[in-house]
Design a protein around this nucleic acid. Sequence first.
DNA 1: CCCGCGTGAGACATGTATGTCTCATATGGG
DNA 2: CCCATATGAGACATACATGTCTCACGCGGG
Lengths: 192, 192
Amino acid sequence: MSHMGYGCLMAVDREHVLRSAAALLTRRATATMDEVAKAAGISRATLHRQFAGRDALVRALEELGIQECEAALDAARLDDDTAREAVRRLVREFESAAGLLGFLYTENQLFEGEEQNAGWARIDARIAALFRRGQQSGEFRIDLTPAWLTEALYGLFASGAWAVSEGRVAAKDFQYMIVELLLGGALRREES
Amino acid sequence: MSHMGYGCLMAVDREHVLRSAAALLTRRATATMDEVAKAAGISRATLHRQFAGRDALVRALEELGIQECEAALDAARLDDDTAREAVRRLVREFESAAGLLGFLYTENQLFEGEEQNAGWARIDARIAALFRRGQQSGEFRIDLTPAWLTEALYGLFASGAWAVSEGRVAAKDFQYMIVELLLGGALRREES
DNA sequence: CCCGCGTGAGACATGTATGTCTCATATGGG
DNA sequence: CCCATATGAGACATACATGTCTCACGCGGG
């Protein structure tokens, strides 16, 4: 009876394992597969049955991160309103994914050799397009390239998440600090 | 004749090894001790004679990074001029150290357990003091805390260095992009 | 010329994370 | 009630970086 594929009793749900792994690896990027398994409340054997290895797990987390980003981008409705309002929504929607993103961001530097997942290029393109729209509408400065503004946003997310986890910035100020610094730099001077 | 301590033939010079290691680890944070040795043009044995282990090497690199930062801070003369000019000088002086800083920044997250080197706190304090001076002089906004501005500067350095190494930003624009984005956010609106 | 010192090369042991396997168990469905 | 299936526990081999050691070589000084 292999026709069911999913349903049935299906003990561990992949989703929960991924969430636990994301939460743990966000804090300790070097956590062991054993620790990941414990964090998810399953045995290392079962973890390994679902993800062929640490590599596969990280790739799956990457997929998850990409999905969350694209969902956040959808929810932020980047084409509506003024560009700066869209940026605010973007930061708001991204906050919950900031931790995972930070992990993947540094983890990607270790994949150096291989080509990176095409999903990131799509996400980069959507965010860069938002900044470009803002430039064309006259809201944003044109001397800072959309590509750089995109990278800078990532960097601010990373340091923001880090600062919060270190207690140097209050969690409730996370969005405000990032948006205000980024927009203040991206908006033209004669801005409200 | 142990009274010389340094001079003599003293084959490998510690400085050169550190520089090579910094250059390599900046690109590939997971490089092997063997690769580090090869990059420095010495054998693993000799490398190990100078630095008791990978840990010791990273600590030494941390010391080097701290020294470079403090030298950059001195050279930037943070107390002179307007705060924004001081920030420009700061970014300029920091550029050459950006790669090493990026490596140490992510590496520090792995030390999570142990207390971090007091040097970083000193550096943080000096930079935060600059932002605070700018706030008190009325140049900078007061709704973004000095601590956050400091962290944000680190984040922008990291993403800037990364973007340059990935070819998304031209190396010659590195300083400009960072300074303009940061200052645009830190300066009050009615700014030149 | 000989000796000492630092180096390079490599063998060897170690620790650790990982991948793989087996087996007992429990749970749920037929 | 019995069986299938997935899980948990643990043993086991492997790969790899690391730490340690020995030994031969070369260079410079006495």
